[in-house]
Amino acid sequence: MSWWDELLANPAITEKLPEATLETLGMVVFSSFWTALVGLPLGLVLHATGKGGTRPVPVLYAVLSAVVNVGRAIPFIILIILLIPVTRAVVGTPLGWQAAVLPLAVGAVPFYARLVETSAREVAPGKIEAALMVGASRLRMTGGVIVREALPSLIAGFTVTMIALVGYSAMAGAVGGGGLGFLAITYGYQRFDVAVMFAAVIVILAIVFLIQFLGDRAARLVDHR
């Protein structure tokens, strides 16, 4: 048998790999969704309340900033374990890819929020003033000017975050989340079936490349500078 036939005869590849791929995609897509939903407003609030923002509130900024720093400092694998009670309470079980979405989102939100804050800060203050000068409210200005002007950079940051989530999802897999990370570890590390491990890594690479490609395309599409 050639190596190719051998691969196709391996049930870990033909059955487990597609399943694990779907689980990983599920974890990444859903956790990215929640990350954007929470991280974008959080980053904008950080920008607005920070020094030089449109509504500086030093105390609020200090608190949010500390929370974000703590969230980013805790190693992800430990965050998953710390969050088990929360996950159990919210999802019902700490196991399975659906349960992994919660710690993944919690881990990625502070990361993305910081990227959003940085992107927002790059919008020229003059543009913000121009919007306020025509009578726009802060909320309206934030959506219509900060988000819109920073969109290429926000998309680039989101791409980076999604790719980080692919990596995190492998870790989440290792502690009960399933997915490609789990497959690679159980077969490659515990059963010495290196072919499965390589196959899982190749699929992960393909996912990462695809996300980067789509992210670049999207960022370029909205960039008129």
Binding site: A124, G126, G135, G144, H224
Partner: peptide, 29 residues
């Protein structure tokens, strides 16, 4: 502020919008 128009040294146009959309922005507001 709608009764006050402001022209800036660095113009401060919204780069993500066309010229027409820039002019339309105060009207939308």
């Amino acid at each position: 502020r709608r009764r006050i128009g402001m022209v800036f040294q660095h113009v401060n146009l919204f780069e993500a919008r066309t010229a027409a959309a820039n002019i339309a922005y105060p009207l939308a507001v």
